[in-house]
Design a protein around this nucleic acid. Structure first.
Lengths: 333, 333
DNA sequence: CTGAAAGCGCTTACAG
DNA sequence: CTGAAAGCGCTTACAG
């Protein structure tokens, strides 16, 4: 590929001038600029980013690590951040840790050699030490947090979500509610469970399931749901609160396998708003996270940090969820 | 961050030796090597990849452009390719074109400055000219093709998929089948429609819908399905063949909105096997693509090309789909 | 087995 | 407005 010296030769100018024509066009005579641009077109020149980055000492590169790219939440975050980063002319390098701290660590090591100017991560459990070597650059953590002190953290207001859900169910007359969540070793599930405990009105009978782990929850949720559905109607909860989209999928599966019908026999609210919730035969009432906004905010916040516009200490930013009422929550009155 | 000269100073060795200890350890005395490794640990040194790439003239970087990262097909491709590429110690830069040729072109321009050694792309329509400047490096196209001559192409055997679907429906006694697909300006939809035409047995009454466009198909499919469902039972097709996952979602929605039941009133086969197909109240019979395998093969094929192991001309590779029989296809006999 | 030197392609003070 | 020169951090023949 043509380089800046080829362009210089072709135009009879110096490499300095060619470089300037590209980076500070106003400092170059109009005629000169045109001649250069034409040569660039003809020879198909494109700046060698390695040389530029080496010389300038800045990589204009951001790292992004999600823990499961197949999860729509994560894919949406990738998309949002990508949109912002291309706008800024930065390069984004994406990795997926598959909820595996060792894999995360490997990816992080590779990223380090790219002289990242910033990092955005949905950390997997116990990631803090993986991040210690990133002390020099701003780090933003989404949805979960590693325990690293200097990170900005962007999360849902999980308690608020549970407040919305509990109030909705209570308003419909539900007084016997089943909560199914993942392991509270994950902060997100801990907060959701706490929110449920806190906002579920006192006169309500609660049934709680904490599934082990944070992955492969769907099958487990289906099992648990089948148990719940087998209870005689008088002892059975009238509503289920599924603490994330995988669990919601399992609940739906379990309910139908038990021969019951959503809404009619048992109500359901899903935390997260998976795609299928809207076109399900019985569309599912959901607590929706503003995922795209969260990703976008993460990227913008990161750029503010990189530019040094923000001198405050790292903080946690909470985003507000929204209750989407559909047909899976029936009134008992 | 520490560089190779810092390590050299600290150990009293030359930069050459430090570099060699890293890249060709066997050429350096064991003791020297240890001393160097220790210094690297202490100072937290990490190779500057820009300097290395600049010097070596190769970027060890692959570009990947999908057209919609939120589509599970695309997300799976990203994951598969990522897995392969990390294994090879390469860097992957991912972009999403959002089915927009202009955006694709912008991303491609950015990628060019990274001196890519290879490119994998799910091209959006009419992309060929966007790719002309990538004449020097191997390009692999997945699922669709741009028209570029020198690309390897990896696709599903769509006709075979339709053959499986048609045979399954025919075997169950269906003789009145509705096909709903996207615009045949997209090769994939063209092939699926052709496959349907070709393998649908002669005694069958066919009803064909070609929706405009290749995006936002769900709502359109729901509309069309409602029309179909409103037909009197005697004139109504007994089965619907949905040509991709978005269309399948719309069909499901349309069927339920019409008050009909899947299987019982009307059968459904979905091309692609979306996550929800398996836990739907009436789990959906599907034609599944080996998506992960296709992505993995793309990456491996690309590496073969990069290494020059493959001298044959670029070809099209067809992957075989699989029929997953669930409950949405009922027997009429 | 180790070191001195050149060079990858670019940018950037500095001089004119 | 333009050019000559130095240097970013690394690797790699070449010499010893």
């Amino acid at each position: 590929m043509a380089n800046i010296i080829d362009i210089a030769k072709k135009t009879g100018l110096s490499p300095s001038t060619v470089s300037r024509a590209l980076s500070k066009p106003e400092k170059v005579a109009a005629g000169t600029r045109e001649k250069i641009m034409q040569a660039i077109d003809e020879l198909g020149y494109e700046t060698n980013i390695f040389a530029r980055n080496l010389r300038q000492g800045g990589s204009r590169t951001i790292g992004l690590i999600v823990s499961d790219i197949l999860n729509p939440f994560h894919a949406t975050v990738v998309k949002a951040i990508q949109d912002e980063i291309y706008r800024e002319g930065f390069t984004l390098i994406v990795g997926s840790s598959e909820e595996d701290a060792a894999k995360e660590s490997t990816i992080l090591a590779q990223l380090r050699s790219h002289q990242l100017q910033g990092l955005i991560i949905i950390p997997t459990s116990g990631t803090c030490e993986n991040l210690t070597s990133f002390s020099g650059i701003p780090v933003i953590e989404i949805d979960r947090f590693s325990g690293r002190q200097q990170s900005d953290i962007i999360r849902l207001d999980n308690e608020e979500g549970m407040k919305l859900a509990a109030a909705h169910l209570h308003g419909l007359g539900h007084r016997h509610i089943c909560y199914i969540g993942g392991s509270t070793s994950a902060e997100t599930f801990r907060e959701r469970l706490e929110g449920f405990q806190k906002y579920c009105p006192e006169q309500t009978t609660k049934m709680l399931f904490e599934l082990p782990g944070i992955a492969a929850l769907q099958a487990q949720a289906a099992d648990v749901t089948r148990q719940v559905c087998q209870l005689p109607a008088s002892e059975r909860p009238t509503a289920i609160l599924a603490a994330n989209n995988d669990i919601a999928a399992g609940v739906v599966q379990g309910v139908y396998q038990s021969g019951l019908a959503l809404a009619q026999d048992i109500s359901l609210i899903a935390f997260d708003d998976p795609e299928w919730a809207s076109f399900f035969p019985c569309p599912v009432t959901a607590i929706r996270q503003p995922v795209y906004d969260m990703g976008q905010f993460a990227a913008r916040q990161l750029f503010r940090r990189i530019r040094g516009e923000l001198l405050e200490e790292a903080t946690t930013w909470r985003f507000t969820p929204q209750l989407i009422i559909r047909h899976s929550t029936a009134s008992l009155t």
